[in-house]
């Protein structure tokens, strides 16, 4: 054991001794910082070691992994642990119950039907909103793909909906859909003469939510697709024009390979976000008319009813589903790009 800045084994040994002493002798808040400093010291040893061995991959990735571990992965593991305990955030007691929370969430007479209903609704919202966003975003990107006068100023108009705070745009959508004051009802009433209430049926409520969500997030898809579209070298199109390749074929053989990666990225991130749809539902329907989503349901269970560990169990079931879905999708995407 030689004493040098890149000896990480020595750093770990010393670190363990110091943190154990700190935990025993000092209060929690002070010992937390000492353990943090020790972790930083060990990390520094790893960094120096990696630098001496020219191990750049690890070096470049380390800061990101460290931040993600402290702020995301550690809390995630914590709540995974909680899902095996009976724990309520407004009470002190905690005891180990194994898989009981998972069984309860899936089969309990009172909880299970609501959970399954929310799950089915979430699946419906994912399919509808992501499809709408991809189609609208893609069409918008095609509109903006070529250089034309004033393009810059028109593009920013389309991007603005994405910049609005969900609180404001959601509240204003309740106003647009409002049966007495809203614009939509005013227009429809003027045409049909009847009293039109969009949010009174399930179809109407779902349409309203999907419309608002697609309106807000299609620009996201558009911007990613556009970044791919403008990167296609012009000489490819010129060559295709000389060879009299049809527009349709040009799109599939030249344009599409350039935007495929970004299109996939947009699809991936919008799908993940759509699974978490809650804010618009809270603002527009409060879960009424059978529009409850799993994410809103979780907020109710974990925050309003204080059933922390049952919420954690339900969300890990959801995470499992998202992981299976994403893996399937990444597998298909990878196989496609290797085949091409």
């Amino acid at each position: 054991m030689r004493l040098s800045p890149d000896n990480w084994k020595l750093a770990i040994l010393a670190g363990l001794a110091v943190s154990a002493a700190a935990v025993i002798a000092l209060p929690a808040s002070a010992s937390f910082w000492i353990i943090g400093a020790v972790a930083a010291m060990i990390a520094a040893a790893f960094v120096v070691n990696a630098y001496r061995r020219k191990y750049y991959g690890g070096l470049l990735v380390a800061p990101a992994i460290a931040v993600l571990f402290v702020m995301n992965i550690f809390p995630l593991l914590w709540s995974l642990g909680l899902s095996f305990y009976a724990y309520q955030s407004n009470q002190q007691s905690i005891r180990f119950v194994g898989l009981a929370n998972y069984i309860k969430v899936l089969t309990n007479d009172i909880m299970a039907p609501a959970n399954w209903g929310a799950l089915v609704n979430t699946a419906m919202f994912v399919v509808l909103t992501v499809t709408a966003q991809m189609v609208v975003g893609f069409l918008l990107a095609m509109l903006f793909a070529k250089q034309f006068p004033l393009r810059k100023y028109l593009l920013i108009l389309v991007l603005t909906p994405m910049m609005l705070s969900v609180v404001a745009s959601g509240v204003f959508f309740t106003y647009y859909y409002d049966p007495t004051f809203g614009i939509l009802s005013y227009v429809v009433n003027a045409i049909t003469g009847g009293q039109f209430i969009l949010m009174s049926t399930k179809v109407g409520a779902v349409t309203g939510i999907v419309f608002a969500d697609a309106w807000m997030w299609s620009p996201f898809v558009m911007l990613l697709v556009l970044a791919g579209l403008v990167s296609v070298p012009k000489y490819l199109y010129e060559a295709a024009a000389i060879d009299r390749v049809s527009k349709w074929r040009q799109f599939w053989t030249i344009t599409f390979p350039y935007i495929r990666g970004l299109l996939m990225l947009a699809l991936l991130f919008r799908t993940i976000e759509a699974f978490k749809l809650a804010d618009l539902v809270i603002l527009l329907t409060k879960g009424g008319n059978d529009t409850m989503t799993i994410s809103y349901h979780l907020i109710r269970i974990a925050n309003e009813q204080n059933k922390t560990s049952e919420g954690a169990a339900l969300s890990y079931l959801m995470l499992f589903m998202v992981i299976v879905l994403t893996n399937l999708y990444l597998y298909i995407a990878n196989r496609r790009s290797q085949g091409a």
Binding site: V61, A64, I65, L68, M71, N72, I73, F74, P75, L76, W78, S79, L82, S89, L268, F269, I272, F275, K276, A278, I294, S295, L298, I299, A302, N303, T308, G311, A312, S315, M318, L319, V322, I323, T326, N327, L330
Partner: peptide, 23 residues
């Protein structure tokens, strides 16, 4: 690694938030 990083965005914020508040 890339997939684990992606996983951090998959859970609803409410699940991460309780441990973070305690921490």
């Amino acid at each position: 690694y890339l997939f684990i990083i992606l996983t951090t965005r998959m859970l609803p914020a409410i699940v991460v938030i309780i441990p973070v508040i305690l921490m």
